[in-house]
Computed example of a mutant assay.
Amino acid sequence: MDASDTELKKELSATLQARSELGTEYEPALVESFLEKVEQRLDGTLDRRVRRHLAEQQVRGARSPERASSGHFGEQYGFAIVSLILAVPLSAIGVVNAGFQGLVATWLGIVGVNAFQASRGGRPFRRRGEERRESDWED
């Protein structure tokens, strides 16, 4: 557990303590405030990972000019990054409207959509008019 995990745990504890002191009428505001802090932490982590990955790719060099220009990184990880960023406000909406069950339903949907995307093997969606290739080795 690193320092940011400890800090986040303290924030959650403080939020729960405030909820017990203030009552349920302030629950949506407290949940939203906590989720904003989680979102900021997630954004920072994702930014660091993307920068690190891009730096590693620059050091190694692109495997081929075609892949470098096609935005392969965006195709492979863009969906997951966007779904994680959208997970925070969707979770807040689920909690505010349906409580814990709404949170569970929201995350089951997020996991389901990402599992489907992962089961496709990272293959990008084909656009109309694009030919289907049997492998990436074909030109």
Rank of each mutant, 00 (worst) to 15 (best):
M1Q: 11
D5Y: 10
E7F: 09
L8R: 03
K9L: 15
K9Y: 07
K10W: 03
L12V: 13
L12Q: 11
S13R: 13
S13H: 15
T15R: 02
L16V: 12
Q17W: 06
A18K: 15
R19K: 07
S20I: 04
L22D: 15
G23N: 11
G23K: 03
E25S: 14
L30W: 11
E32T: 15
E32A: 15
L35F: 13
E36Q: 11
K37R: 13
V38Q: 05
V38E: 00
V38H: 02
R41I: 01
D47H: 12
D47Y: 04
R48P: 01
R48C: 04
R51Y: 01
R52K: 12
L54Y: 12
L54C: 04
Q57D: 07
Q58F: 04
R60S: 15
G61I: 03
E66L: 08
E66R: 14
R67M: 05
S69I: 03
S69C: 04
S70V: 06
S70D: 15
S70I: 04
G71W: 02
G71S: 02
E75A: 08
Q76Y: 11
G78C: 04
G78Q: 03
G78A: 05
G78Y: 01
A80Q: 12
A80M: 02
S83D: 15
S83V: 08
L84W: 04
L90F: 13
A92H: 10
I93Q: 12
N97F: 12
A98S: 09
T106H: 00
L108I: 13
L108K: 13
I110L: 13
I110Y: 00
V111T: 13
G112S: 06
N114W: 00
A115R: 08
F116W: 08
F116P: 01
Q117V: 11
Q117W: 10
Q117S: 08
Q117T: 11
A118R: 14
S119Q: 06
G122F: 00
R123Q: 09
R126A: 14
R128H: 09
G129S: 07
E130V: 01
E134R: 09
S135E: 01
E138N: 02
E138A: 11
D139E: 13
